Amino acid sequence: MIDKEKFIGDGYWLLPPGKLANVVVCLEMTAKPTQRPVPQRDRPFALERMPGPDLGAYRALFRRIGEDWMWFSRLKMPDDRLHAILADPAVEVFVLKEDQIHIGLLELDFREEGQCELAFFGLVPEAIGQGAGRFLMDQAIQKAWARPIRRLWVHTCSFDHPGALGFYRRSGFVPYAYAVEVHDDPRLTGHLPRTASPQIPLIEK
């Protein structure tokens, strides 16, 4: 969640070595958009609810999807806390498949009454640009608005895929806030390999 009570002033803010900062954009939709036509494919995608919670399978897919985009939150989270989230009946986790191969992850969080957070949404690198993202987003919107919610929201950041923000806006999300996130570089804490996200400079000292 974004803390709406914390603000920083204008200017440049120097980070100590080992820290990263990125700009977060928060987006929301407050009504279900019109469903887009779904292109027909010779090899259709399939979306399946993830059984479990199987922390090993979840983290393996999370890492495959997010290593290039600095996803690390669920890798460093203690097992008991992650288990509690994934086992919560108000959290729905789905795996996108093509030919029985796991290529995408969708996590919808309904724990806040009247709202749904699109908590995690992503594809493995080889699936990007193949229509899988549009299919997965259409499924996310349908499943979120099938519940009695007033708002579906998501956030993206400057570490994400360059096309992510435009994709969310084309899907019907409207930006409503900026935030700055500061955290330890997970490549230095061991939660991601040092080769992860090579487009983000690794500064140790």
Rank of each mutant, 00 (worst) to 15 (best):
A21M: 08
I128M: 05
E98Q: 14
L106F: 02
A196E: 00
D80Q: 14
S73K: 12
H102A: 12
V182L: 02
Y168S: 04
A57R: 15
R169E: 13
P148K: 14
R49N: 06
R147K: 11
N22G: 15
R169D: 06
E181R: 12
L202T: 08
F110M: 09
P39C: 07
R147Q: 09
A57S: 14
S171E: 05
V93L: 04
Q130R: 15
A177C: 10
S197H: 04
L188M: 03
V93F: 00
V124M: 13
A144I: 02
K32I: 02
R150Q: 12
R36W: 01
L82C: 02
L14D: 06
I200F: 03
F72M: 10
Q199D: 01
P201N: 09
D42V: 06
F72S: 12
A46H: 14
I103P: 15
Y12P: 10
F121S: 00
I149Y: 05
E92T: 08
V182K: 06
E107S: 10
A46S: 13
G163Y: 01
R43H: 08
F135L: 00
L20N: 12
N22R: 15
P37E: 01
V182N: 03
R59V: 07
Q142N: 10
L82G: 03
E112M: 07
E107T: 15
D99Q: 13
A196L: 00
P162H: 09
M50L: 12
W13T: 06
F62S: 11
R187E: 03
L27E: 07
M137D: 04
H155S: 07
M137R: 09
D10L: 12
A57L: 11
P186W: 01
E107W: 06
V174L: 13
E181T: 05
R111V: 04
T189E: 01
E113M: 02
S197E: 00
L14H: 08
C157S: 13
G104M: 08
P17V: 05
L192A: 07
M50Y: 06
M1F: 06
P162V: 10
M77P: 02
I200W: 03
G122F: 00
F7M: 13
R147D: 02
P53R: 12
K143N: 06
D10K: 13
L96I: 06
Y58M: 00
I141P: 09
L61R: 10
A146Y: 02
G11A: 13
A140C: 00
F45S: 02
I200T: 12
